[in-house]
């Protein structure tokens, strides 16, 4: 009896730590769920063929192998380790999600057709239409970059002026209060007559979508600056320009960034609508084009791209904010 206990005590740690490290259990489950997605895709016959089955199985299979490897040989510290620990349950969930998704669409056809597409269907869209999608991404980014850039700059300048100058605020505030709440998309019918090309009109609408929140928040940020700061500045001999650039603008920046975040989401929403009204290319155009032919897999594939793009832009803006407002850490 005691011999068995000794044996168990000797073997148990080895089984749990085959490479001298504890096994990452969520990793094993993640590997299993991703492997299941790969197996379901290659072994079960298709009710609906969406294409790119092999590629999908290859990708999910590779991911499963990576998780299995990480499960037994996970780094003991560092950023990768932290990420793995944090997102373990998510990795499992995504594998399960992909398996169920593939099962309920391509393999059994349970979900209503043609509205639901399989993960292989989305992958197939990327495989067959990648060049046109890249074009569309570039077109959308160009339109968004121009619109958001113009909107942010004009909105920022207007916001500073409104917050600083009494005369500007007297004339400008009522107009802003009137125009501000109107959704930028409501301007679409008129802008298309005012501007020579659809592209110009689209840039204007995107700029309006991003500019107004930036204006409102910048001006309120500047108006909210503690007047004591200005008094101190004036006592030390600062001129108005110095007061604006060194006191008003820095202390209003946190507000401005909130405006930029709001403007970013809003401008992307407007961008898609603007592109649906006769753009040559662009993600909004692509969604519109494919919807007309009921190409739902293409629509979903584009929505995924759009979500990733939007998340990426938000991430970029966060990075910019953390850099510029580093001095304010713990302050805001």
């Amino acid at each position: 009896m005691s011999q068995a206990t000794d044996l168990f005590n000797a073997v148990a740690p080895l089984a749990a730590r085959p490479f001298g490290r504890p096994i990452w259990t969520p990793g094993l489950f993640a590997a299993a769920s991703w492997a299941a997605a790969a197996l379901v895709t290659v072994t079960l016959p298709n009710v609906i063929a969406f294409g790119s089955d092999e590629l999908f199985a290859l990708i999910t299979g590779l991911v499963a192998i990576v998780f299995a490897t990480l499960a037994v040989a996970r780094p003991s510290r560092g950023r990768l380790r932290e990420t793995l620990d944090l997102y373990g349950p998510w990795f499992i969930a995504v594998g399960v999600w992909l398996t169920l998704w593939e099962l309920t669409t391509a393999k059994t056809g349970w979900l209503p057709k043609p509205f639901f597409s399989a993960p292989t269907g989305l992958l197939h869209v990327y495989v067959t239409d990648w060049d046109r999608l890249l074009y569309c991404i570039a077109y959308s980014l160009r339109l968004w970059g121009l619109g958001f850039g113009i909107g942010a700059v004009v909105g920022y300048v207007a916001g500073v002026a409104l917050g600083w100058s009494k005369a500007f605020a007297y004339w400008g505030m009522p107009i802003l209060k009137l125009i501000g709440p109107v959704p930028a998309t409501a301007w679409i019918p008129v802008t298309f007559y005012f501007f020579p090309t659809t592209f110009d009109a689209s840039v204007f609408i995107v700029a309006l979508g991003s500019g107004i929140p930036v204006t409102i928040l910048t001006s309120s940020g500047i108006a909210d600056v503690n007047p004591v700061y200005y008094d101190v500045g004036r006592n030390l001999g600062a001129r108005p320009w110095y007061l604006i650039t060194r006191i008003a603008i820095p202390s209003a920046l946190p507000h401005t960034f909130v405006g930029l975040f709001m403007g970013l989401y809003y401008s992307i929403a407007v961008l898609v609508v603007a592109e649906m009204l006769g753009a040559k290319y662009g993600l909004g155009w692509y969604i519109q084009f494919q919807t007309n032919y009921s190409g739902y897999a293409n629509v979903y594939a584009t929505i995924v791209i759009m979500a990733l793009l939007c998340a990426g832009l938000v991430k970029l803006l966060f990075m910019a904010r953390d850099r510029m407002l580093g001095w304010q850490k713990g302050f805001i």
């Binding site: 609906i48 057709k113 043609p114 269907g121 032919y293 009921s294 739902y296």
Partner: peptide, 9 residues
Amino acid sequence: LKPLEQGFD
């Protein structure tokens, strides 16, 4: 045709 290509019954 497009929905039929994508398995529309």
